[in-house]
Simulated scan of single mutants.
Amino acid sequence: MNIGTKIKNLREEKHLSQTELAFELGISQGTLHNIESGNSKKIDFLLMDKVCQFFDKDFEYFLEDKFVNNVHENHGQVGQNNNIINNFPENFLEEFKKLVEKNQANEKIIEELKEKLNTKD
């Protein structure tokens, strides 16, 4: 199952339209349609981070059934066909997970600060 199909299945499980999910991810409905239908062969890591956070899934969930290959013309993007994944160091997934966790922690801190500001008003 490719990344787009997994995103579509998760979206449908949450009973969301493409338009609703696209809005949550900060992309156009057309872009999401292309990803879900397999017409878009590359998805950048920032978007995948948003997808992982929105659906509360680890990055590895979307990599199941994929090969890890060194593809130099990939330019740091995740591909949806079965042979493009990375040209990154072996510990890339661990480092990516750490960045996602740090990002989530920072978002919590920002929300707490916003709440403090709102209670001062």
Rank of each mutant, 00 (worst) to 15 (best):
N106Q: 10
D49A: 03
N86A: 08
I110Y: 08
H15C: 10
N74C: 06
D49H: 02
F96T: 04
P89H: 06
N74Y: 03
L99D: 12
L47E: 04
E111V: 13
E64C: 09
I84Y: 07
K50F: 01
Q18R: 12
E115H: 08
K120W: 01
K98T: 13
N74S: 09
G26R: 10
E94Q: 11
K116G: 15
E94A: 09
E24P: 05
R11V: 01
C52V: 02
K120V: 07
F67I: 08
D44H: 08
Q77L: 13
F45K: 10
I84H: 05
Y61M: 12
K57Q: 15
K98M: 15
L25T: 10
E13S: 13
V71P: 00
L99P: 00
N103M: 07
G76F: 08
K6Y: 06
I110A: 14
D56N: 12
G4P: 02
F88H: 12
N106F: 10
N9M: 15
K97F: 05
L10R: 12
E112W: 06
Q77A: 04
L32G: 03
F45T: 03
L25G: 10
L47G: 03
E36H: 01
K114E: 13
E73C: 10
K98Q: 15
I43M: 02
G26D: 10
E111R: 14
G38Q: 06
L21E: 05
N69W: 00
F54M: 00
G26I: 09
E107R: 09
C52W: 01
L117K: 08
K8E: 07
F96C: 02
F96R: 15
G38M: 07
N91E: 10
G38R: 04
F54D: 00
N91P: 05
I109P: 00
N91Q: 06
G38E: 07
K66S: 13
G4R: 03
V51L: 02
F96Y: 15
N91W: 02
E115V: 03
T31Y: 14
E13W: 03
L46C: 08
N81I: 11
E115Y: 08
K6E: 05
T5Q: 11
E107F: 03
D65K: 13
Y61L: 13
E12F: 02
I35Q: 04
L21V: 04
Q104V: 14
N81E: 12
K14W: 08
K108P: 03
L47F: 01
V68Q: 04
Q80E: 14
L10K: 14
K102H: 11
K41Q: 15
V78H: 01
Q29S: 15
S40N: 07
K14L: 10
N91G: 08
N86M: 06
M1Q: 07
S28Y: 05
K116Q: 11
L46S: 14
M48I: 13
I109D: 05
N39H: 11
V51F: 04
S40K: 06
D121G: 09
N69D: 06
T5M: 09
F59H: 13
F88N: 13
K108A: 09
S17P: 00
V78N: 02
